[in-house]
């Protein structure tokens, strides 16, 4: 038996919007730790890892570890039917091939339940090694989204380079080139607008912009994004979910042969 009650149901709505374009179907894993997911996109270039810790739920009951295969498109359709202020409860019985999403309005005058069919999905978990990153950039998530969107209109790939001067995002396409430099800016009064660069070594890596633009769908989840880079390693783009966990995207680089 599984019963997870999330007062801030909008978090789950935002999570689905953040991952449904990258991954079609995925297994959600439920354990005492929390509600989690790890899945690759169909071309195996990007990987998304989601964790919603059990402590973040109002009520969290998970009698035994469960893995539930879901179509993220269909799950997003169902969660779109929840109001932004609704309390969302996820329920499943042992051995059932369905999951129920219950939506309660804040004043309890409207209660809806949506039952969704589960599916069998073959998926393998990948071991993500602990890594010391050469450079970690923390910046406003809206700024990162804007940069990826703007560069995506000019080129297909972004070169991210971190130096003492700041972080530079560059692209080139048929119409020309673009470079955007963000310098460290530790706004004390508005921490959500800060750009903080921790650099052990200068690092330059190349990535496909369409994935970066897909990751930016997580922008409504967090005011800040953390980008961790090391030469010849996948970049980690992390959006923290307040009090609950995170959505982390890993993207394999493009490497000159």
């Amino acid at each position: 038996m599984l019963e997870l009650r999330l007062v801030q149901g909008s978090i789950l709505k935002k999570v689905l919007e953040a991952i449904k374009d990258l991954v079609n179907d995925a297994n959600f894993d439920c354990s005492a730790t929390g509600f989690s997911l790890q899945a690759m996109d169909s071309s195996h270039v990007a990987l998304v890892a989601l964790l919603l810790r059990s402590e973040g739920f109002e009520h969290y009951r998970c009698d035994r570890n469960l893995s539930m295969g879901m179509s993220l498109t269909n799950m997003a359709k169902m969660l779109k039917c929840a109001g932004n202020d609704d309390i969302v409860t996820i329920k499943a019985d042992d051995g059932s091939d369905t999951i129920t999403f219950m939506f309660e309005s804040p004043t309890q005058d409207k209660i809806a339940d949506f039952e969704m069919k589960l599916m069998d999905i073959d998926s393998e978990h990948l071991g993500i090694p602990e890594a010391e990153y050469e450079a970690i950039v923390r910046m406003p998530s809206s700024e990162f989204a804007r940069i990826c969107k703007d560069l995506g209109t000019i080129g297909d790939t972004v070169v991210i380079s971190v130096t003492k001067e700041g972080v530079k995002f560059s692209t080139r396409g048929d119409i020309g080139t673009a470079n955007i430099v963000c310098r460290q800016n530790t706004s004390i009064d508005k921490p959500e607008e800060a750009t903080i660069i921790e650099m052990q070594e200068p690092v330059t890596l190349t990535f496909a912009l369409r994935y970066m633009n897909s990751f930016a769908k997580a922008t409504p989840l967090a005011t800040q994004v953390t980008i961790s880079l090391s030469s010849e390693l996948p970049v980690v783009v992390e959006y923290k979910i307040a009090e609950m966990g995170y959505v982390r995207y890993y993207l394999a680089p493009k490497i000159e042969e």
């Binding site: 270039v45 990948l126 790939t157 996948p234 394999a252 493009k254 490497i255």
Partner: peptide, 14 residues
């Protein structure tokens, strides 16, 4: 241009 690597090149299956 540079070659797009896959994530499984860096992270192994459990």
């Amino acid at each position: 241009g540079p070659k797009q690597y896959t994530i499984t090149r860096f992270f192994s299956k459990l």
